[in-house]
């Protein structure tokens, strides 16, 4: 925007910006700098000793760290497959005039998004409860009692159980993202395809999909950054257990700090998560712009 006749002094501009920058910088920027600083020390009995990059060397060789990171990637992969893709399919169906109550569907599917993670975690604790749970009881009621599981207590399946809870809660977010993407695409191209006799499937793949490339990029970025943000649900549902089986990186940083009182190492993990997340997000955006999105807005 070109400078206008109506332009206050630079000082006046910064006076308006300053309060927000101070509050936000004090929670986002200075802790990151402080966190990096502490990660260069070693903690023993709440005493800090200079350690250089020793914590990062330890992190590189820490199998538990890689295991918890792998859990994040399982969640990310499953949310891209089940959450993002399902949301896309539902959005396309809802846009297709076949669906009788789109408003109700959208509101109902979006509803869990607004609930507190603590509440939804307890909802899923109750669903997965071995004896009184909704899931095991439903399985028994419909004669599939053989499929009953210790959903949150079996280390082999617990990571998938908690992923179900996450997918359930946030699928509505991806749905409204795709719906708003769909509402912005050119309806004439769809009608033209219909006139040419394209099937619903052909319309979706050849007409709608390419026009939604930037929406897909948003959804994938959100799934990746969201997958690395997971903390509260698992903290409440399983505490990361049994053992480490459902621990994600953010909780690993937390338990190293508060249970092992190793704040330096906790900070090291925190810094690693931030760097990793920003790198992955930038790479995804770059890859989409480079290879997929043709017409940037």
């Amino acid at each position: 925007m070109a400078p206008r006749a109506f332009q206050p002094s630079t000082i006046a501009i910064w006076l308006f910006l300053l309060p927000g920058i101070v509050v936000y910088g004090g929670v986002v920027l200075t802790p990151l700098i402080g966190g990096f600083y502490y990660s260069l020390f070693e903690t023993k009995n709440f005493q800090f000793h200079w350690a250089g990059l020793a914590n990062y060397v330890r992190l590189w060789g820490d199998g538990d760290f890689w295991f918890t990171l792998r859990n994040n990637f399982i969640i990310i992969l499953l949310s891209v497959i089940f959450q993002v893709t399902t949301a896309f399919i539902i959005a396309v169906l809802m846009n297709s005039r076949l669906v009788i109550a789109p408003k109700f569907l959208r509101t109902a599917i979006f509803f869990p998004v607004i609930l507190s993670p603590v509440v939804t975690s307890f909802v899923w604790i109750l669903v997965f409860d071995i004896n009184s749970g909704l899931l095991n009881n439903t399985l028994e009621a419909i004669g599939l009692g053989g499929l009953q599981q210790k959903w949150l207590d079996d280390p082999k399946i617990v990571i998938y159980s908690v992923t179900v809870a996450l997918v359930w809660q946030y699928i509505g977010l991806f749905l409204v993202i795709f719906l708003s993407g769909l509402s912005a695409i050119n309806q004439e191209t769809i009608e033209a395809a219909e006139v040419d006799g394209a099937s619903t499937f052909q319309k979706t793949i050849y007409v709608i999909f390419p026009q939604l490339a930037s929406t897909w990029s948003v959804a994938i970025v959100l799934a990746i950054s969201g997958g690395l943000k997971i903390f509260e649900h698992i903290f409440v549902m399983t505490g990361g257990g049994p053992g480490l089986s459902s621990t994600v990186v953010a909780q690993y940083a937390y338990s190293q700090s508060f249970l092992r009182a190793n704040f330096s190492y906790g900070n090291t993990i925190a810094i690693a998560i931030v760097v990793l997340s920003l790198t992955l997000v930038s790479l995804t955006i770059w890859a989409f712009n480079r290879f997929v999105v043709k017409d940037r807005i």
Binding site: V28, P31, Y38, F231, A250, V274, L278
Partner: peptide
């Protein structure tokens, strides 16, 4: 805008320290 992309739970320990 950076705040929208940051993995916020990663800031728990650094914010606690500060």
């Amino acid at each position: 805008i950076l705040g929208l992309l940051l993995p916020i739970p990663a800031l728990l320990v650094p914010v606690f320290m500060q």
